[in-house]
């Protein structure tokens, strides 16, 4: 048997590993793209804002209890205010297990979306995030936020008993998993992934051609 030297074995190992993993990643991304195309038809209750024909389309995966998501929401709100024709945002639920009110807040958010009041409700949730996050029972502030956002609280009570809201949230979570989302906030800016408000700002500023940071994360 021909002898192989230590340096040669090292190089062979590195090259084989890199080639194998690069190939695996390529096939994984192809499969994910195909799955996403199929999933795009089944997404329920999209929560969107801005110009649907905008040059910058942001898909956001959010957990309403995540502090970093609150920063992200504020950054996006400023973009929407400053560049209403250039930016379009769609929100997907991605409640994380580490947040005790993640799922409850997502269910309320979904019910707000069904009354077409998702955005004012989201603003209220984010504004008072610290307050309700610290509570064992976040429902009193949720009711208050809902009322101030102009929601019919009786309808929300009915909506919360509807199992299809859980299906909608689960569909979002499944889509997120397909897109390899593991933490929040995760964004897809014109289909390109960026995680966290800092990366989002860098990406969107680049697309808008902003050199100096005008919108702070």
């Amino acid at each position: 048997m021909a002898k192989i030297s230590k340096p040669i074995l090292t190089i062979v190992l590195i090259v084989c590993c890199v080639a194998l993993l690069a190939g695996f990643k390529y096939f994984q991304s192809q499969r994910a793209a195909a799955n996403l195309q199929a999933a795009a038809k089944t997404v329920l209750s999209p929560r969107a804002k801005g110009n649907p024909k905008a040059e910058i389309k942001i898909l956001e995966f959010i957990d309403f209890q995540c502090p970093a998501c609150a920063s992200g929401v504020k950054v996006i709100a400023e973009y929407l205010e400053k560049y209403p024709e250039k930016v379009y945002v769609e929100v997907r639920h991605f409640p994380l297990a580490m947040h005790k009110h993640g799922i409850t807040s997502a269910r309320w958010g979904e019910c707000a979306a069904r009354q077409d009041k998702f955005w004012p409700f989201l603003d209220g949730l984010i504004e008072r995030q610290r307050e309700w996050s610290a509570l064992n029972d976040p429902l009193p502030p949720f009711r208050d936020i809902a009322t101030k956002a102009g929601l019919n609280v009786e309808q929300i009570k009915e909506c919360l008993n509807d199992t299809t809201i859980d299906d909608a949230i689960q569909a979002d979570v499944e889509e997120g998993k397909m897109r390899k989302v593991v933490s929040t906030p995760s964004y897809f800016v014109n289909h390109e992934m960026c995680v966290g408000a800092k990366s989002l700002k860098t990406k969107v500023d680049n697309l808008l051609g902003i050199k100096e940071a005008e919108v702070k994360p």
Binding site: L21, M193, V195, S199, T202
Partner: peptide
């Protein structure tokens, strides 16, 4: 290492950004 290599690098970038120690 495998888990991180196979995930999108943006997920690990977000982790690194959290430590606020390196330039961009």
């Amino acid at each position: 290492g495998l888990d991180k290599v196979l995930e999108p690098h943006q997920n690990f970038l977000y982790v690194i950004q959290g430590y606020q120690i390196f330039p961009e």
